[in-house]
Design a protein around this nucleic acid. Sequence first.
DNA 1: CGTCAGTTTTTCCGATCGGTCAAACGCCCC
DNA 2: GGGGCGTTTGACCGATCGGAAAAACTGACG
Lengths: 213, 213
Amino acid sequence: MSSRNASPERRPAARAEVEDAILRAAEAEFAEKGYDGATTAAIAARAGLPKANLHYYVATKEALYRRVIGGVLDAWLAEARSFDENGPAAEALTRYIEGKMDLARARPLGSRIFAREVMSGAPAVRDFLETTLAEWVKARGAVVEGWIASGQVRPLDPKVLFFTIWAVTQHYADFGAQIAALNGGAPLDDDAFAAAKRQVVETILRGIGPDRA
Amino acid sequence: MSSRNASPERRPAARAEVEDAILRAAEAEFAEKGYDGATTAAIAARAGLPKANLHYYVATKEALYRRVIGGVLDAWLAEARSFDENGPAAEALTRYIEGKMDLARARPLGSRIFAREVMSGAPAVRDFLETTLAEWVKARGAVVEGWIASGQVRPLDPKVLFFTIWAVTQHYADFGAQIAALNGGAPLDDDAFAAAKRQVVETILRGIGPDRA
DNA sequence: CGTCAGTTTTTCCGATCGGTCAAACGCCCC
DNA sequence: GGGGCGTTTGACCGATCGGAAAAACTGACG
C-alpha cells in the first residue's frame, strides 16, 4: 500500500510523533490553565511548532480538547480493569486503590482535566458519566454487594465506597500543589508517597471491613 | 460623622447589597467557568447591572477574584474551628467531618474555586497554604499524635489523615455533577446525602481506630 | 527536471475580552 | 431651584484569541 517510502519508518513516524507531541502539550496546558485559560499558541509553542501548523493537524481547539479528554477516559477505563481480576475483597480493593494512587502520581494531568471538566458541569463527558461509568458502577456495585453478602465487607452503599476511593486517590493528583506546600514546598518523594499509599489502603480496608467481635 | 442621611440605613445598605450581589455572582461564575472562563460581563449580568457599573465597585477582575478567594479561605478557617472543641477523638473527628460535608453541600462553589486555584498551581493561595494552613496542620497534627499516644487512634501520619478527610468531603462539592450523573441525573436528596455522610464518618473512624484484639 | 501531494509558515481577520471615559442621572442640602 | 456629589450607563479602545488563507517549502516519483 504505502509505496512512497524507501525507509518505511521515517515519515509516518514523524507524523505520529508530531501528533503525540501536540496531545501531550495540550494535556499539560489544559490541566494547568483549563480549557479557556489554555491558548492554542501556548500549546503549539510547547509542542515545538508555530501556531498555524497546529491547525494543520487538528481542526479546532475544541476538537483537540475532546481528543485529550478521550485519552483520559480511555486511561481511566484501562486502569479500572484491575478491579475485575478475581480474588478476595481485600486483594481486589488493594489492587484497585494502589493502581489509582500510582496513576495519580504518574499521570496527574489527566485527573486534573477531568476534575475541571466535571466542575464545569461535565459538558464533554456527561455521556461517559451517564452510560459507560454508570454501567461500570452498577456492575462493580454488584460485586461489592457480593462481598457484603459473604461477610467480607460490612453493609454499606457501594457507590459511596467508590466515591471515597476516587476522592482520596484523585486528591493526590488534583491537589498536588497543596500537598507539596504542606510538605515543605516539594512533592512527596517516593518513600513518603508509598507510606501515604499504605495508609490510604489500610484506612479504607479497615473502614469497610466487617465488625470484629 | 455621616451627616448626609436622614434615614441612616438606606443608602449604605444599598451599597452593601450591590457589593454582596457582585460577590455572589462572581463566586458562581468563577466556580463554574474558572478564572479565565468567567467574564466580567457575565458576572455583572448575573448581579443585575451593566458591565461598566461593575468596574465602579471593583477595580479589576483580578481584584474581584482575590476578594472571592479571601472569602472562601475565611469560610474554611471558620468551619475548621469545629476541630478544636475538646472531646474524645471520635467525637472531634465526627464533628469535623460532618461539618465539612455539610459545608460542601451548602456552599459547593467555594470548594470548586479553591480546587481550580490549587490545580492551577495555587498562585493566589500559595501564601495561605504555606503559612496559615501549614500552621493549622502542624497544630492539629499534634492533637492527632496525642490521640495516637492515648490509644484512641492507630499509629498513622496525621497529614495523610487530613488529606483523606479533605479529599472525601470536598469530593461531594467538587464532583457534584458526577455524583448527580450516577444518581439518575439529580443531586443527592437529603436522605441520600445524610446516609453518605454517615458512611463516610463511619468508614474513616473505623479506618483509623486502634487494633481491636 | 518538472510535477504534485503533503507540510510548514507568514500574514491577516473578525470576535471577544477587560477596562476606560465622559456624559447623563438621581438625590440631598443650601 | 440650583450646585455638587455619588452613581449609572452607553460608547469606545487596545489587546488577545481562535482560526483562515495563501504563499513557500520539501522530497518522492515519473
